[in-house]
């Protein structure tokens, strides 16, 4: 799958930024491709290392694309490299290497109703899976999406949230923001509370969670309360990463490497690991 001439998994391939979308004040989505299209194919939930070569590298969830003609990354400006990448313009060359990690268990979830619970930039990995489900609509049952952010402005992927996904059949999209604001008629409150209020039935369902650690923690408690079993709950973890190929050591939780064995785990697997997640 590597087009890299040296076949060296730590050497990036050069791609060009072909489109940049402002999602929120601090999140942008970057579309990249090389002459022939995508340097590699990805599955929902997989990761790729993006590099601003003179600055640094960072690991991001890479968006699954039906057409597989470009790679897509939604990047929040938090550190040195991410704030730099927010300054680039279309035409900029970047390095990418990947894909890394296990991705979501798309096969195992077939035939199930899907409940996606996201917060903030955490919608990015979920979105891949959501799009995959809608593309393979007949393979999955009812699809429910619960998503929240600090404010309306901080909601990512607004077109999908408010236009595209609500139109999909047998699906529901619920959006919440932390505090009331003028013009917002939707739900106000944190994701875990909204989840409990909506109270989706656990029967034949898989819940997929991604968001800030504090949200994940409370959503897990809520799901447990609502009767979800550990095997029905899937989440993706985040750790600092450097190599992406399970060698450099830092992203371990117990004997598992997030970059290689993760980032996607079900709660039953996580409970086997030391409580560092």
């Amino acid at each position: 799958m590597h087009k890299n001439s040296s076949e060296n998994p730590l050497v990036p391939q050069i791609v060009e930024v072909v489109k940049i979308i402002d999602e929120t004040p601090d999140v942008k989505t970057f579309y990249v491709r090389d002459e022939s299209g995508v340097p590699f194919n990805v599955m929902p939930g997989q990761l790729a290392m993006v590099s601003m070569l003179p600055i640094g590298e960072g690991m991001f969830s890479v968006s699954w694309q039906e057409e597989q003609d470009h790679l897509e990354f939604a990047i929040k400006s938090v550190g040195l490299m991410t704030s730099e990448i927010h300054r680039i313009e279309v035409g900029q060359k970047l390095g990418v290497r990947g894909p890394y990690g296990n991705g979501f268990p798309v096969e195992k979830c077939k035939g199930k109703d899907m409940l996606f619970i996201g917060g903030g930039i955490g919608l990015a990995p979920l979105r891949s899976f959501i799009k995959y489900c809608f593309k393979h609509r007949e393979d999955y049952g009812k699809i429910q999406i619960i998503y929240g952010s600090r404010s309306y402005a901080d909601l990512c992927f607004k077109e999908e949230l408010f236009e595209l996904w609500p139109r999909e059949k047998d699906s529901e999209t619920f959006v919440t923001i932390d505090k009331p604001e003028e013009g917002w008629e939707g739900n106000v409150g944190f994701v875990p509370a909204y989840l409990e209020q909506l109270n989706p039935d656990p029967a034949n369902k898989i819940a997929v969670i991604c968001g800030p650690p504090i949200m994940i923690k409370f959503v897990l408690q809520s799901l447990e309360k609502m009767g979800y079993q550990d095997e029905q709950i899937i989440t993706t973890l985040e750790m600092r990463m450097k190599c992406g190929i399970g060698k450099c050591g830092r992203c371990n939780i117990g004997s598992e490497y997030i970059c290689l064995d993760g980032p996607v785990f079900d709660l039953a697997q996580l409970r086997q690991l030391p409580p560092e997640w």
Binding site: L10, L53, P54, I55, G56, E57, K242, C243, K247, C248, G249, R250
Partner: peptide, 14 residues
Amino acid sequence: YCFDIQVKTRGEEG
């Protein structure tokens, strides 16, 4: 064996 990956840049080379 743990390692870090870092970059050095000077002018247009790195």
